[in-house]
Design a protein around this nucleic acid. Structure first.
Lengths: 195, 195, 195, 195
DNA sequence: CATGAATGAGATTTCATTCAT
DNA sequence: AATGAATGAAATCTCATTCAT
């Protein structure tokens, strides 16, 4: 029990170290040696918890994606209606990304990295199922456009990554007004237009 | 003349080789040795054309971004009206990305890479000026939402990257219908909603 | 303990290998690959003990300089008088250089190399403090000329390097008579001339 | 004639460029490419004038050594007596080294470099024959110690290199007084001591 | 479970030299 | 005579991973 406890701590220290290092210098900048040093363990120890660097990064990806989804769906109450619920999710996601910038940037970096394997990507996508359910519901109510969930995601959620990217590079800072505008654009893009 | 000609060819061969290698294995997977071999030159030769790997990648970035913009604005005729012009640009961009998948994927990878320096990024952005001009015009005509160009880009253009990403991973293939839907979402997100 | 022991041995093996290689082919001839091979380790291993080639050479410089000074001042007994003490030091230095020709040649090479940084040079100079102290004493007793220590060093000690250089190139071999002559010249150059 | 003229100019430009580059960064810092660029020729052209880098450096060594000797023996008038003549030579050498610091430093660097081959070294030494002749004369007159010319050189001339080295590193700057002291030491070391 | 030491393979880059013109 | 282009070889250094303890 004590050992297991300790192990979990160490595992998380390793994940945290990786996250931090990926943030400065990209995935390739997070060398196993640096990860080990930042987590105060031996490089060899990493391999007791993870099979390889790829495994380490993939597990971190799942960890962060799950945390992100947990934050997004914290108060998931679809019974309040599609618009309200989507708005809550959207702002929860934005809040998470603004608060946990390292995590957000890490997820962005993973989007285009060959380090994340397809299976992990799929598993990460599953964490967003509640959102897809909501959209399904919205489509049944003729509130959400009858598009594939990927398309809805591309317009409803994905643009946030670009905005965060700009924000972190000091361009186009995000304040409440801009966030409100962004949400407006997101909603307009996926909602059924009234005639 | 003959020498210069040959130089240009070699330079382009190097850029092509880089593009191709970045596509399989990411930027770090495109080692100078591999680039050299694929372009059928010695590693040392690369340094006659580019100062460093960073320079090579940045110049490739500019090259591709310019080609992309050229394709996008090929028949740029703002006098036809904002909607028509935007639609033409949008579909030209999509067509380019569908036709030149390696280029499209490369640009995506550069978005989050520390390899591209800020100056190059800014220069790349300039290639999209006609689009920003169009939006300005649209805002004057109260057709386009009064948002910052970055926000408009995040919703009007950026989602394409996600869709191409999916497409190239075999998910959610893009056909004419889906493209039409995607454009609809893009336009809805940036246009001024009618009451 | 065993591990630490082994480390020290390997560190010294690396220093010895470097010393030997610098002797044939100069500092640039001592490539990290050759050093590694001669010390029977992987090139990567060198970097566990030294930060860089510069660090390796600088540490070797300090090592050798210290050993040289230790030999020079082994029986340092200034109470025997300035002349006697200087003579003992001088011959101890000569003996060291004759016995450890690689070390002597290495120190000579370092004199003009940009590889040795100023801080290391200064630290190496400190090892000769007893000699400078002796000269100070000699100056107080009006036995040694009232010159700056650098000047005294230039004439009292530095010429040895030239003689060793010749010796190792097979020119002007050093025997006891020549050494005695050399010492005579050294002493005449720094001592106060009697009228 | 015109071609030959031009050739000589180019050859000297190459030697000058090498000298300048060796001064910043040592012999290995003077890459053939840099030498070519600084002399405004193609790298290939260097090989029309010199067989190899080694040849280039060796010829430069001879050039500089000769210039140095020319300066040293400009007013060589042994009939004025050994002391006077040696003093003139000594100060002429010092003046040369102070005026042409790049040349002086280059000669110092060559002393310990494996780049200079033995034959060249010997040839360079010949340039100093007048000095050796003077010493011979001095020995016949019982003014100069009966030591081998190498030993006399080690004490009479070689220390200058150390002093210049210090000077150029900003330590122990040389003014007229220090020079006078240095000469005093030099002379005391090689002259026959009076009883 | 944990580690410090070690490493083979490979990364980027430089260099003296040659070749085609 | 002169060159710009090209290069094989080698330089320094890094990295993910393993091994002996």
């Amino acid at each position: 029990m004590a050992l297991l406890q300790k192990s979990i701590e160490k595992r998380e220290a390793l994940l945290r170290a990786t996250l931090s290092l990926v943030n400065n210098g990209g995935i390739q900048g997070a060398s196993m040696a640096k990860v080990a040093k930042l987590a105060s363990v031996s490089p060899a120890t990493i391999y007791l918890y993870f099979e390889s660097k790829q495994d380490l990064v993939n597990q971190l990806y799942l960890n962060v994606k799950t945390a992100f989804a947990n934050a997004a769906f914290k108060n998931y109450t679809p019974e309040e209606g599609v618009y309200i619920t989507f708005k809550k999710i959207w702002f929860a996601m934005a809040a998470y990304k603004l608060k946990y910038k390292e995590e957000a940037s890490f997820l962005s970096q993973c989007d285009n990295s060959p380090m994340i394997d397809e299976a992990t990507r799929q598993e990460g996508l599953k964490a967003l199922d509640p959102l897809f359910d909501l959209w399904l519901m919205g489509q049944e109510q003729a509130v959400i456009k009858n598009f594939s969930p990927y398309l809805l995601y591309a317009y409803g959620i994905y643009p946030m990554a670009f905005l965060m990217n700009m924000e972190s590079r000091g361009i186009n800072p995000l304040n409440d007004d801009v966030l409100e505008e962004a949400f407006q654009a997101a909603w307009d893009s996926i909602r059924v237009s009234k005639l």
